[in-house]
Nucleic acid binder design. Structure first.
Lengths: 111, 111
DNA sequence: CGTGTAAGGAATTCTGACACG
DNA sequence: CGTGTAAGGAATTCTGACACG
């Protein structure tokens, strides 16, 4: 993969830290999850774990709500963006597949 | 600065997550702090907070201890490395200062 | 020296619910 | 609809100490 994910997407931040990082209340953070806007992982004991990407997303969500956008609308926006992203990914993958078929390019850096 | 620190150095990971990430026991993690090998921040309530960089450092420390190196030795190694880093930084800064004095280069990207 | 453990307490997090509007 | 709050319980973390070696 071109863009290997690392720190930004690892879910390792507990809700109290997220609260401090974003300035949101825990109530707000949990509510946005209830509305399917954010998807933390869980520790073995059941505690929520967020990534830095989640933290940034939470701030964006809170900003939109302040602007009067409802959670349902925000969710639809996100689904649209996600869908477009998937299409773009697929298109890129197909073009790559064509190139490989035509010219027999190998994938990874060969040793 | 050339290398703006971001996710890797933010202290946002609690000790339980660090335990899961490294496979070390909480006892080990706290002990390495007692021996001044690692420096977590504290939340308002007193809980330790680590960065991804800390997590990586902890693994390195544990590996050295497994190799029979004592914490005191590891600490000395780290201080040497730190000192060298500071010297390099200073040297770079001085050279930059000379260039600025000679040619009057401005620092940041001007608007 | 480095690590495990039991102990007691304090801080953290969880869920479901009532409230307001 | 989005958020605050009190409630009760469970999981998490903290410190200081004893143990082994």
């Amino acid at each position: 993969m071109a863009n290997d994910f690392s720190y930004k997407d690892k879910k390792v931040i507990t809700i109290g830290i997220v609260r401090d990082l974003t300035g949101l209340s825990e109530r707000q953070i949990r509510y946005y999850e209830e509305r399917k806007l954010i998807f933390p992982e869980r520790s073995s004991g059941g505690s929520r774990k967020y990534s830095f990407a989640d933290v940034e997303l939470l701030v964006e969500i809170a900003n939109k709500i302040e602007d009067g956008v409802q959670t349902h609308e925000i969710r639809k926006e996100m689904l649209r963006a996600q869908k477009k992203q998937n299409q773009d990914d697929l298109r890129r993958k197909m073009i790559q597949g064509q190139l490989n078929a035509q010219f027999g390019l190998r994938k990874g850096p060969s040793s």
